[in-house]
Design a protein around this nucleic acid. Structure first.
Lengths: 219, 219
DNA sequence: TTTTGTGAACTAGTTCACAGCT
DNA sequence: AGCTGTGAACTAGTTCACAAAA
């Protein structure tokens, strides 16, 4: 069994901390490539994020031996590898459920398109919104059409930006429409069946963490 | 020295993981109190988040002995304690820098006000936006007024929702205006001096984490 | 009896330090 | 000489398991 296969079999035990860092490395490599830099060492990368160089080498080594001893990593090569590892070598289509302020803002968020995600649809229960478009041109569909549009447009990722009370029902609906990856922006605990990856971003928790630190120092 | 003081001195070594969970517990307690529940055990709480009961007890025990053996925790009491620990017993004022789609959406995000944060000001470099208000009525100021408004309105927390290229300059400006806590929504590494708490929310990293999981399963 | 608070055991994640390749 | 890849050492975080309290 080849070294690559040995690694492949251990790939599901990669921690989320590692994959998050891979995203960060990738962004950095894109900057470096744009700046015409050919090679980069783990130390040079580490300095940018005040991270440990060994950590970067370990993160990368889970997936293969991408570096060259005495030289470092070829920026172009490593970037290509990371894009492939993160599944960004194919265009991933995203649907956003909830066309309120937040949903509309996310639909036109330039960072997504830039990294290769394509926001293809918004969904909303409010009939007044259906048929409209975001400023950037993403069409708003009735939520009843979620299953149909998801299949037609091959939506792979759902973003949840609805009021808290509707969130679990929307997750269930997305799952039943065949969605296997969900990014949730509503607060509170949601559950999804095994095999469906659910990731949550909770603004309130983040703000409260800041509040805690102010409370500690401020007395 | 009292037990409370002994703990107080160790308070700065509380991990972010713990404080994030405290926010989650607090939200749950608010629901329980609204539902008229008097007491709750660490096991009952743990089930809600499929978390470990010992973890919850440890998280709480950093700050005092809030529980009653054989009974559990008094919901009302614990809620009050958590609000105090997280610094939510006083109204915290927030300013949002960047009045684009995202900044405006955050300004009117109902979850913030609900937890006791007050969004008092938006700031933007674009003169066309200055003088306008968010739908919810938050006024948009020129960024040049950041220092003045921050002092006048006693803004404690800054939210960064500007384009990536402007982000570090905006952080520096906020710090020089006396801000000690910053919630950053732009991608990439920003730096702030010691004593200033900078927390980042990176949408792209979250989406790429989902992409990674799809790439692993999907083959 | 029930449930907390917490030391001890365990697990996960990070950093060190160096052999080995270029 | 320079830098990677990685076992070993270390640090942080979680879970177990039980004495002590109500």
């Amino acid at each position: 069994m080849s070294r690559v296969n040995k690694r492949k079999s251990a790939l599901d035990q990669i921690s989320e901390l590692t994959t998050n860092r891979l995203s960060v490395y990738l962004r950095c490599l894109q900057d470096l490539e744009a700046a015409g830099v050919q090679t980069v060492s783990s130390h040079a990368l580490a300095e940018r994020f005040r991270l440990n160089a060994a950590q970067i080498r370990k993160d990368l080594a889970y997936f293969g031996e991408f570096g060259v001893r005495g030289v470092g990593y070829y920026v172009r090569d490593l970037r290509r590898h990371l894009r492939q590892i993160l599944g960004l070598d194919r265009q991933l289509r995203v649907g956003i459920i909830g066309a309120g302020n937040l949903g509309l803002a996310l639909a036109d968020y330039p960072g997504f398109r830039q990294e290769g995600f394509e926001i293809v649809a918004l969904f909303d229960a409010d009939h007044a919104r259906v048929g409209q478009h975001s400023r950037g041109g993403v069409p708003i569909h009735p939520i009843a059409d979620l299953r149909r549009i998801t299949r037609r447009d091959r939506v792979a990722i759902a973003v949840i930006a609805v009021p808290v009370t509707a969130a679990q029902a929307v997750v269930d609906l997305a799952v039943s429409a065949g969605i296997r990856a969900i990014l949730n922006f509503t607060p509170g605990a949601l559950s999804a069946p095994a095999g469906v990856k659910l990731k949550s971003v909770d603004f309130t928790v983040s703000l409260e963490s800041l509040s805690f630190h102010l409370a500690q120092e401020g007395g």
